[in-house]
């Protein structure tokens, strides 16, 4: 019993220490977001010197922050949902249906992510111009899907691999089709993994800058990430407002995660194989 409380204490100690290290830069970001314009270099010690809400109110009065947030929400939710759908179907096929060339397909899918985006952004711009998808929300969405699919395939394959095949086979002997066995057995069991893939897709799209900036030039179609970049001028950066915008822009991601993380608990695997 004493042993248990000791290990609990060690756990809490490491937990709190790790958390402080991780959260400090975010605390500092908040400090700067509440600091008066141009004063961030004169913050001394570890506390804010002055407090102002101006940086936040100006976001909504002087810039189309709300519009940018809505664009981001649209692009991120559609692209992550579609990536999850496309990725899960491929990941399941690669995990369960053994076919010729599966290994090669896995590698090829991965290779597409290895060219630095800065090196292909010019051809991508050309392509989207020919497709007539410049300056459209669909264009950005398609670009973001292609950034998330490879990981979605690899990850879902891994999660499906870890679910015993016997469970699905049992369902199929009971008369389920392959699709039904997938839907009723494999999918619920893999759901923690699928939720993680969805979160990854959402955040990747929410933050992506290069595609969103290159493929769209109209300010009202910008996503929030591009809007954030616009605080950085050629000659000087509106630093404190940008910090405030970053804080506002991060809130939806945190909310999505807080909503979904409760579902990250173990699927009902325990007992299923007995």
């Amino acid at each position: 019993m004493r042993n248990l409380t000791l290990s609990k204490a060690v756990h809490r100690l490491i937990l709190v220490a790790t958390t402080i290290c991780i959260l400090f830069p975010i605390y500092w970001m908040l400090v700067l977001a509440f600091t008066k314009l141009g004063m961030s270099r004169s913050v001394e010690g570890f506390y804010p010197a002055s407090l102002t809400f101006n940086n936040f109110t100006q976001l909504f009065t002087e810039r189309p922050m709300l519009r940018w947030l809505l664009n981001s929400a649209l692009v991120a939710s559609i692209s992550s949902a579609l990536s999850l759908l496309i990725g899960t179907s491929a990941g399941y096929a690669l995990s369960r249906l053994h076919f010729r060339g599966a290994g090669l397909i896995m590698i090829l899918i991965l290779v597409t992510q290895m060219m630095p985006p800065t090196a292909i952004v010019v051809p991508i711009y050309d392509l989207f111009r020919q497709l007539g998808m410049l300056n459209t929300i669909q264009g950005v969405t398609l670009g973001h899907i292609s950034l998330v699919i490879p990981l979605a395939v690899w990850m879902t394959k891994g999660y499906f691999d870890s679910i015993p095949l016997d469970l699905e086979n049992a369902a199929r002997i009971d008369g389920c089709t392959r699709l039904a066995a997938f839907w009723h057995v494999a999918l619920p069991l893999a759901s923690p993994g699928l939720i993680v893939v969805f979160i990854y897709g959402f955040v990747t799209s929410w933050h992506e800058f290069l595609f969103a900036r290159t493929l769209v030039s109209q300010q009202e179609l910008w996503t929030g990430a591009v809007g954030l970049g616009s605080f950085r001028g050629e000659f000087f950066t509106l630093f404190e407002p940008q910090m405030a915008a970053s804080v506002v822009f991060s809130v939806p991601v945190v909310l999505v995660f807080m909503f979904l993380q409760r579902r990250l608990i173990s699927g009902g695997l325990a007992g299923g194989v007995r």
């Binding site: 975010i26 630093f239 940008q242 910090m243």
Partner: peptide, 24 residues
């Protein structure tokens, strides 16, 4: 669940913004 949220925060904030904070 609170700590889980803490641990994804660095990733929840756009890299452009966090990088600027590190710069300061």
């Amino acid at each position: 669940s609170l700590f889980r949220t803490f641990f994804i925060l660095p990733w929840a904030i756009p890299a452009v913004a966090t990088t600027l904070v590190w710069g300061v």
